[in-house]
Design a protein around this nucleic acid. Structure first.
Length: 270
DNA sequence: CGCTGACCCTGACGGC
DNA sequence: TGCCGTCAGGGTCAGC
């Protein structure tokens, strides 16, 4: 379940192994992802040098002179660098073989991810509608306040909307709302400016600390069995329905908002 | 335009 | 033990 910190950790893990290298070969074993992997991906990518690996929202962008490979890990995807000659396992759908023999291997049991080839990537509809990066200075409480006026949607659904701010998945939305003391069910338009400042800070804080902890597992992404970083993180509410609130001890409550499991403390979050 | 809910998919898990 | 239903979740899209 890669959230933004896992995607960023993946980027940092694979980037040094890819950058400056040419793609020798592309092997697509199963191209049935969110959208079909382009038939001609091999022809398009082979021979191209990878100039940079960037991230926008939860998308990874592999830049080459001929175009950009856009990768999303979906719900269950992972991208790792494996040693030459490693036999593929179950759900290892795509290999990108690099000039030095290393292999960038994509595994995705649920196949919610995507591999797309873009030219003029910035104009692509998937990237064009996106709101600001949560860790950029552009994202703050003022932006949330302004964009939420008159909106009746629950504040939790609001901050998970990629048109508002990217990269806030279910886990971190729950955690940030707890830290900010805001009831996730509250209408977005009825949250004050002061509380949106707290919320924006909380979002930055949970994502930053998750990325830092993801960094400690970097070698897993590079070498062997990648374990998502957030398992190491101290979670206050996510997955703790019915357990005592870490602030007041009252049992945490669970509801569904926009098809997503939502956990919060009725006492501490108003 | 804003919002809700269906949908894509497989594996884990609980009940019987 | 095994079968079956349910749930998990990011993001897109249809429809109200």
């Amino acid at each position: 379940m890669p959230e933004l910190p896992e995607v960023e950790t993946t980027r940092r893990g694979v980037s040094p192994h890819c950058c400056g290298q040419r793609v020798r070969r592309v092997i697509v074993r199963d191209g049935r992802l969110r959208w079909p992997v382009p038939e001609r991906l091999g022809e398009l990518l082979e021979g191209q040098p990878i100039q940079a690996v960037e991230r926008r929202a939860k998308y990874l962008l592999f830049r080459t002179p001929g175009g950009t490979l856009l990768v999303h890990l979906g719900m269950s995807g992972s991208l790792r660098v494996v040693a030459p000659g490693q036999a593929p396992g179950k759900h290892d759908h795509i290999d990108i073989l690099l000039a030095d023999g290393a292999c960038l291997r994509y595994n995705d049991p649920r196949r919610f991810g995507c591999f797309l080839w873009l030219q003029g990537a910035e104009q692509h509809p998937l990237l064009q509608q996106l709101g600001p990066e949560p860790l950029s200075p552009e994202f703050d409480g003022e932006l949330l306040y302004r964009r939420s006026r008159g909106r009746s949607v629950a504040v939790k659904s609001f901050i998970m909307n990629a048109a508002v701010v990217v990269g806030v998945g279910n886990i971190y939305a729950n955690e940030a709302l707890f830290l900010a003391g805001i009831d996730p069910r509250r209408a977005a338009g009825r949250v004050s400016r002061a509380r949106y400042r707290l919320l924006a800070d909380a979002i930055k804080q949970v994502l930053t600390s998750a990325i830092e902890q993801g960094g400690t597992t970097l070698r897993d992404f590079v070498g062997g069995d990648g374990k998502p970083g957030y398992f190491a993180q101290q979670l206050h509410v996510y997955g703790r329905s019915g357990h005592p609130c870490k602030h007041c001890g009252a049992p945490l409550r669970e509801v569904r908002l926009g098809q997503r499991t939502t956990v919060f403390c009725v006492t501490c979050q108003r």
